[in-house]
């Protein structure tokens, strides 16, 4: 199969699975307070982010675009109850950035909840909000979202980058799973989830160009598909993506016939909701990586003189 077609096909399958399993994106209204109502918001925000990437890159076929539109509508109207669940979440935990982070991609796609926005604006003026302790990569993400929302980032992004693991360009042979996720998310935030590859400082891009191939090789052989997918996104965010054939072929081969992508090695067994909770993230990542890599492959095609 032609390489670009293989890459594209991964995303088509992933979106079919996400659409068919959209009820898995669910909140728990009567959750144990020790776990917290906001615990289940993250998948909804991630879904919105990926759908936004899909619309933005414009490489989806008409069926994919329709599925994505239905998915995002479902998440907003049903899961978030038209934004009311965001207000409820913010009232439950006023200082949590999670409802704000989930809301932003919906807002960028044209959905709106004035009541939630009022709460975000007030809470984010609090010194306590700016003083929240979080890892540098998490802080970088929040600052980027504040900028995109039109609020002044309470810590300027440029001041945070140097404190992230990636921003310090450390020894590449020390990378393990947690560090690798910090790397991928630093790249997502710096590039606005692939929209602005120029957001990567040149030295960071150079560092990644040198060492990403070694990490791709490693996590492909370990069959850690969730992380491999995120690293393939990072590749697509570089000035010169490699669109690594061996990694993509392994990634595509791990995908199930129904489009689900296992997180590690093979599909888990269990109740449908449990399987969803393990598999939704790598499947979202598969859709994300596929859309960005397809878009970059087409760009390369256009730029290559015939």
């Amino acid at each position: 199969m032609n390489h670009t077609r293989l890459v594209h096909h991964v995303g088509v399958g992933a979106l079919e699975w996400l659409h068919a399993h959209r009820d898995g994106f669910r909140l728990e209204l009567d959750v144990d307070p020790e776990i917290g109502f906001l615990e289940r918001f993250k998948p909804v925000g991630e879904l919105a982010l990926i759908c936004k990437v899909l619309f933005r890159e414009g490489v989806a076929g008409s069926r994919q675009a329709t599925l994505a539109r239905q998915l995002i509508d479902h998440a907003w109207c049903h899961t978030l109850d038209g934004g009311r669940m965001l207000v409820r979440g913010q009232r439950a935990e006023p200082l949590s950035p999670i409802p704000f982070e989930v809301y932003l991609p919906f807002k960028e796609l044209g959905y709106s909840s004035p009541e939630a926005e009022r709460a975000f604006r007030l809470n984010q003026r609090l010194d306590s909000y700016a003083a929240l302790e979080m890892s540098p990569v998490r802080r970088l993400g929040l600052s980027a979202f504040q900028r995109r929302f039109g609020l002044p980032p309470r810590v300027p992004e440029a001041d945070v980058v140097g404190a992230t693991w990636l921003g310090r360009s450390p020894e590449p042979w020390t990378v393990e799973g947690h560090i690798a996720y910090d790397i991928t998310h630093t790249v997502f935030h710096l590039t606005d989830w692939g929209e602005n590859p120029d957001g990567l400082p040149a030295e960071v891009a150079g560092y990644l160009a040198d060492w990403l191939p070694a990490w791709l090789d490693d996590w492909l052989d370990l069959q850690r598909w969730d992380l491999l997918g995120e690293l393939l996104v990072v590749d697509a965010c570089l000035p010169r993506p490699t669109l690594d054939e061996r990694a993509w072929e392994g990634f595509a081969a791990a995908q199930q016939p129904d489009g689900a992508m296992p997180a590690v090695r093979t599909m888990p067994q269990g109740e449908p909701d449990e399987v969803f909770d393990v598999v939704y993230h790598p499947t979202l990542v598969a859709a994300f990586a596929s859309v960005l890599a397809t878009s970059r492959a087409l760009t390369q095609l256009v730029r290559t003189p015939s």
């Binding site: 040198d210 060492w211 070694a214 490693d218």
Partner: peptide
């Protein structure tokens, strides 16, 4: 040189 350096990273990781 860059390829051998990548191989060093790979070997340490493994």
């Amino acid at each position: 040189p860059v390829d051998v350096a990548r191989g060093f990273v790979r070997a340490v990781r493994r």
